[in-house]
Design a protein around this nucleic acid. Structure first.
Lengths: 211, 211
DNA sequence: GTCTATATGGCGATAGAC
DNA sequence: GTCTATCGCCATATAGAC
């Protein structure tokens, strides 16, 4: 029981590795830089994680499971669909605001090892099929427009994630490269994305920005 | 006049470098691999482009200018806004279908060198301000909902680009990792994204998937 | 467990013949 | 312009003292 220490060397390594890997990616990261960040010796990295690949996988799965949090509780509550969808968008963008580099990191590394990615998805409790079916039920009940549920899912994710993943370019093109303005813009998107989606899928209602 | 040869060594290098850089990124790419791909010697790469960074920049600007084609002609035609927007989405997704790895590549490398990115944007004829103003005029004329024009632009780009950038994950989660099905899905999105956006922004009209 | 020192290999880059 | 050979560095990884 005594070795459960949040400031343990292993924890320090994991924290440092996450910082460096997220900014530089697997290829760009250097073991020395991670060791510096953790304020330990480089050899210790190998003592704890054998090699760079293993350390990277530890970080990637950690981060991956973090960005796909248990959505189910939000998605499958008793509230009306639009409320659940709104809550999901808000919570998701909030998560990204707290971890703004995750999207670029995930997208960057998603191609590296498809098998590893597949294993992570399986380990994860989330069942995409289940969510798609739920969306289909809503369409059946005609509370939302009929469309491919996968389109809707990917639209929701894209609208939430893209502004983070493409931040440097978007900020430069549309915000005079002002970090402050772009941050405010991202916060406002918790509302505007919600409205944009609901406007598109709600049947027979037109929700306006002000109301 | 005689040295304008499309099969020149320089062309072969550029083509090979694009293939490798797009798949592996700057950090992951190896000069040797590019040389193999071009079926030339590694030393020739340095003879033509001095170093890896310069070669990468040549590829990145080439690709960058390719993915930001002269949008103006489409955006600023005489046709009604919804038609122009629809045409833009279609043409943009078509471009991505022909170059499916560009989005991931661009997003991956967008953080590397902000100054270089800025210089590319400036060199490019596109003036984002001009497009935003045009969108604002449409809102003024009440042909589309009032909202932050930058939101609309980023929504359009995100909805078009994200399914390509996040392909491995989306394909695995929602399409049983079927490449064929995902390709068909992407093609259908030329229509569904258009509908999704127009549904959301058109005032007093509700466009349905079938009509 | 943590360190110093070193092995080992790979990569970008150059020298120099042709 | 194109090649072979090689340099010099740097990054991962290991050996071994403490």
């Amino acid at each position: 029981m005594s070795e459960i220490n949040k400031d343990s060397t292993e924890e320090k390594i994991l924290h440092a590795a996450q910082t460096v890997f997220i900014q530089k990616g697997m290829d760009g990261a250097r073991m020395q830089e991670i060791a510096n960040e953790a304020k330990i010796n480089k050899a210790l990295l190998h003592y704890y994680f054998r090699n760079k690949q293993k350390l990277f996988e530890a970080i990637f799965s950690k981060v991956f499971n973090q960005i796909f949090p248990d959505i189910r509780s939000l998605i499958f509550s008793e509230k009306p669909f639009e409320e659940r969808l709104g809550a999901f968008v808000e919570r998701y963008i909030d998560l990204l605001l707290k971890n703004p580099f995750l999207p670029a990191f995930i997208l960057k590394e998603i191609n590296r090892d498809p098998d590893f990615l597949a294993s992570l998805i399986k380990k994860q409790g989330i069942n995409p099929e289940e969510i798609l079916q739920m969306i289909e039920q809503e369409m059946e009940a005609e509370t939302i427009c009929r469309m491919d549920p996968r389109d809707l899912m990917i639209n929701i994710l894209g609208l939430s994630i893209f502004p983070f993943a493409a931040r440097p370019l978007m900020q430069m093109m549309f915000f005079n490269n002002s970090k402050k303005e772009y941050n405010e813009f991202l916060i406002k998107r918790k509302e505007s994305v919600k409205i944009f989606i609901l406007n598109s899928i709600l049947v027979n209602k037109k929700q306006m920005p002000g109301g």
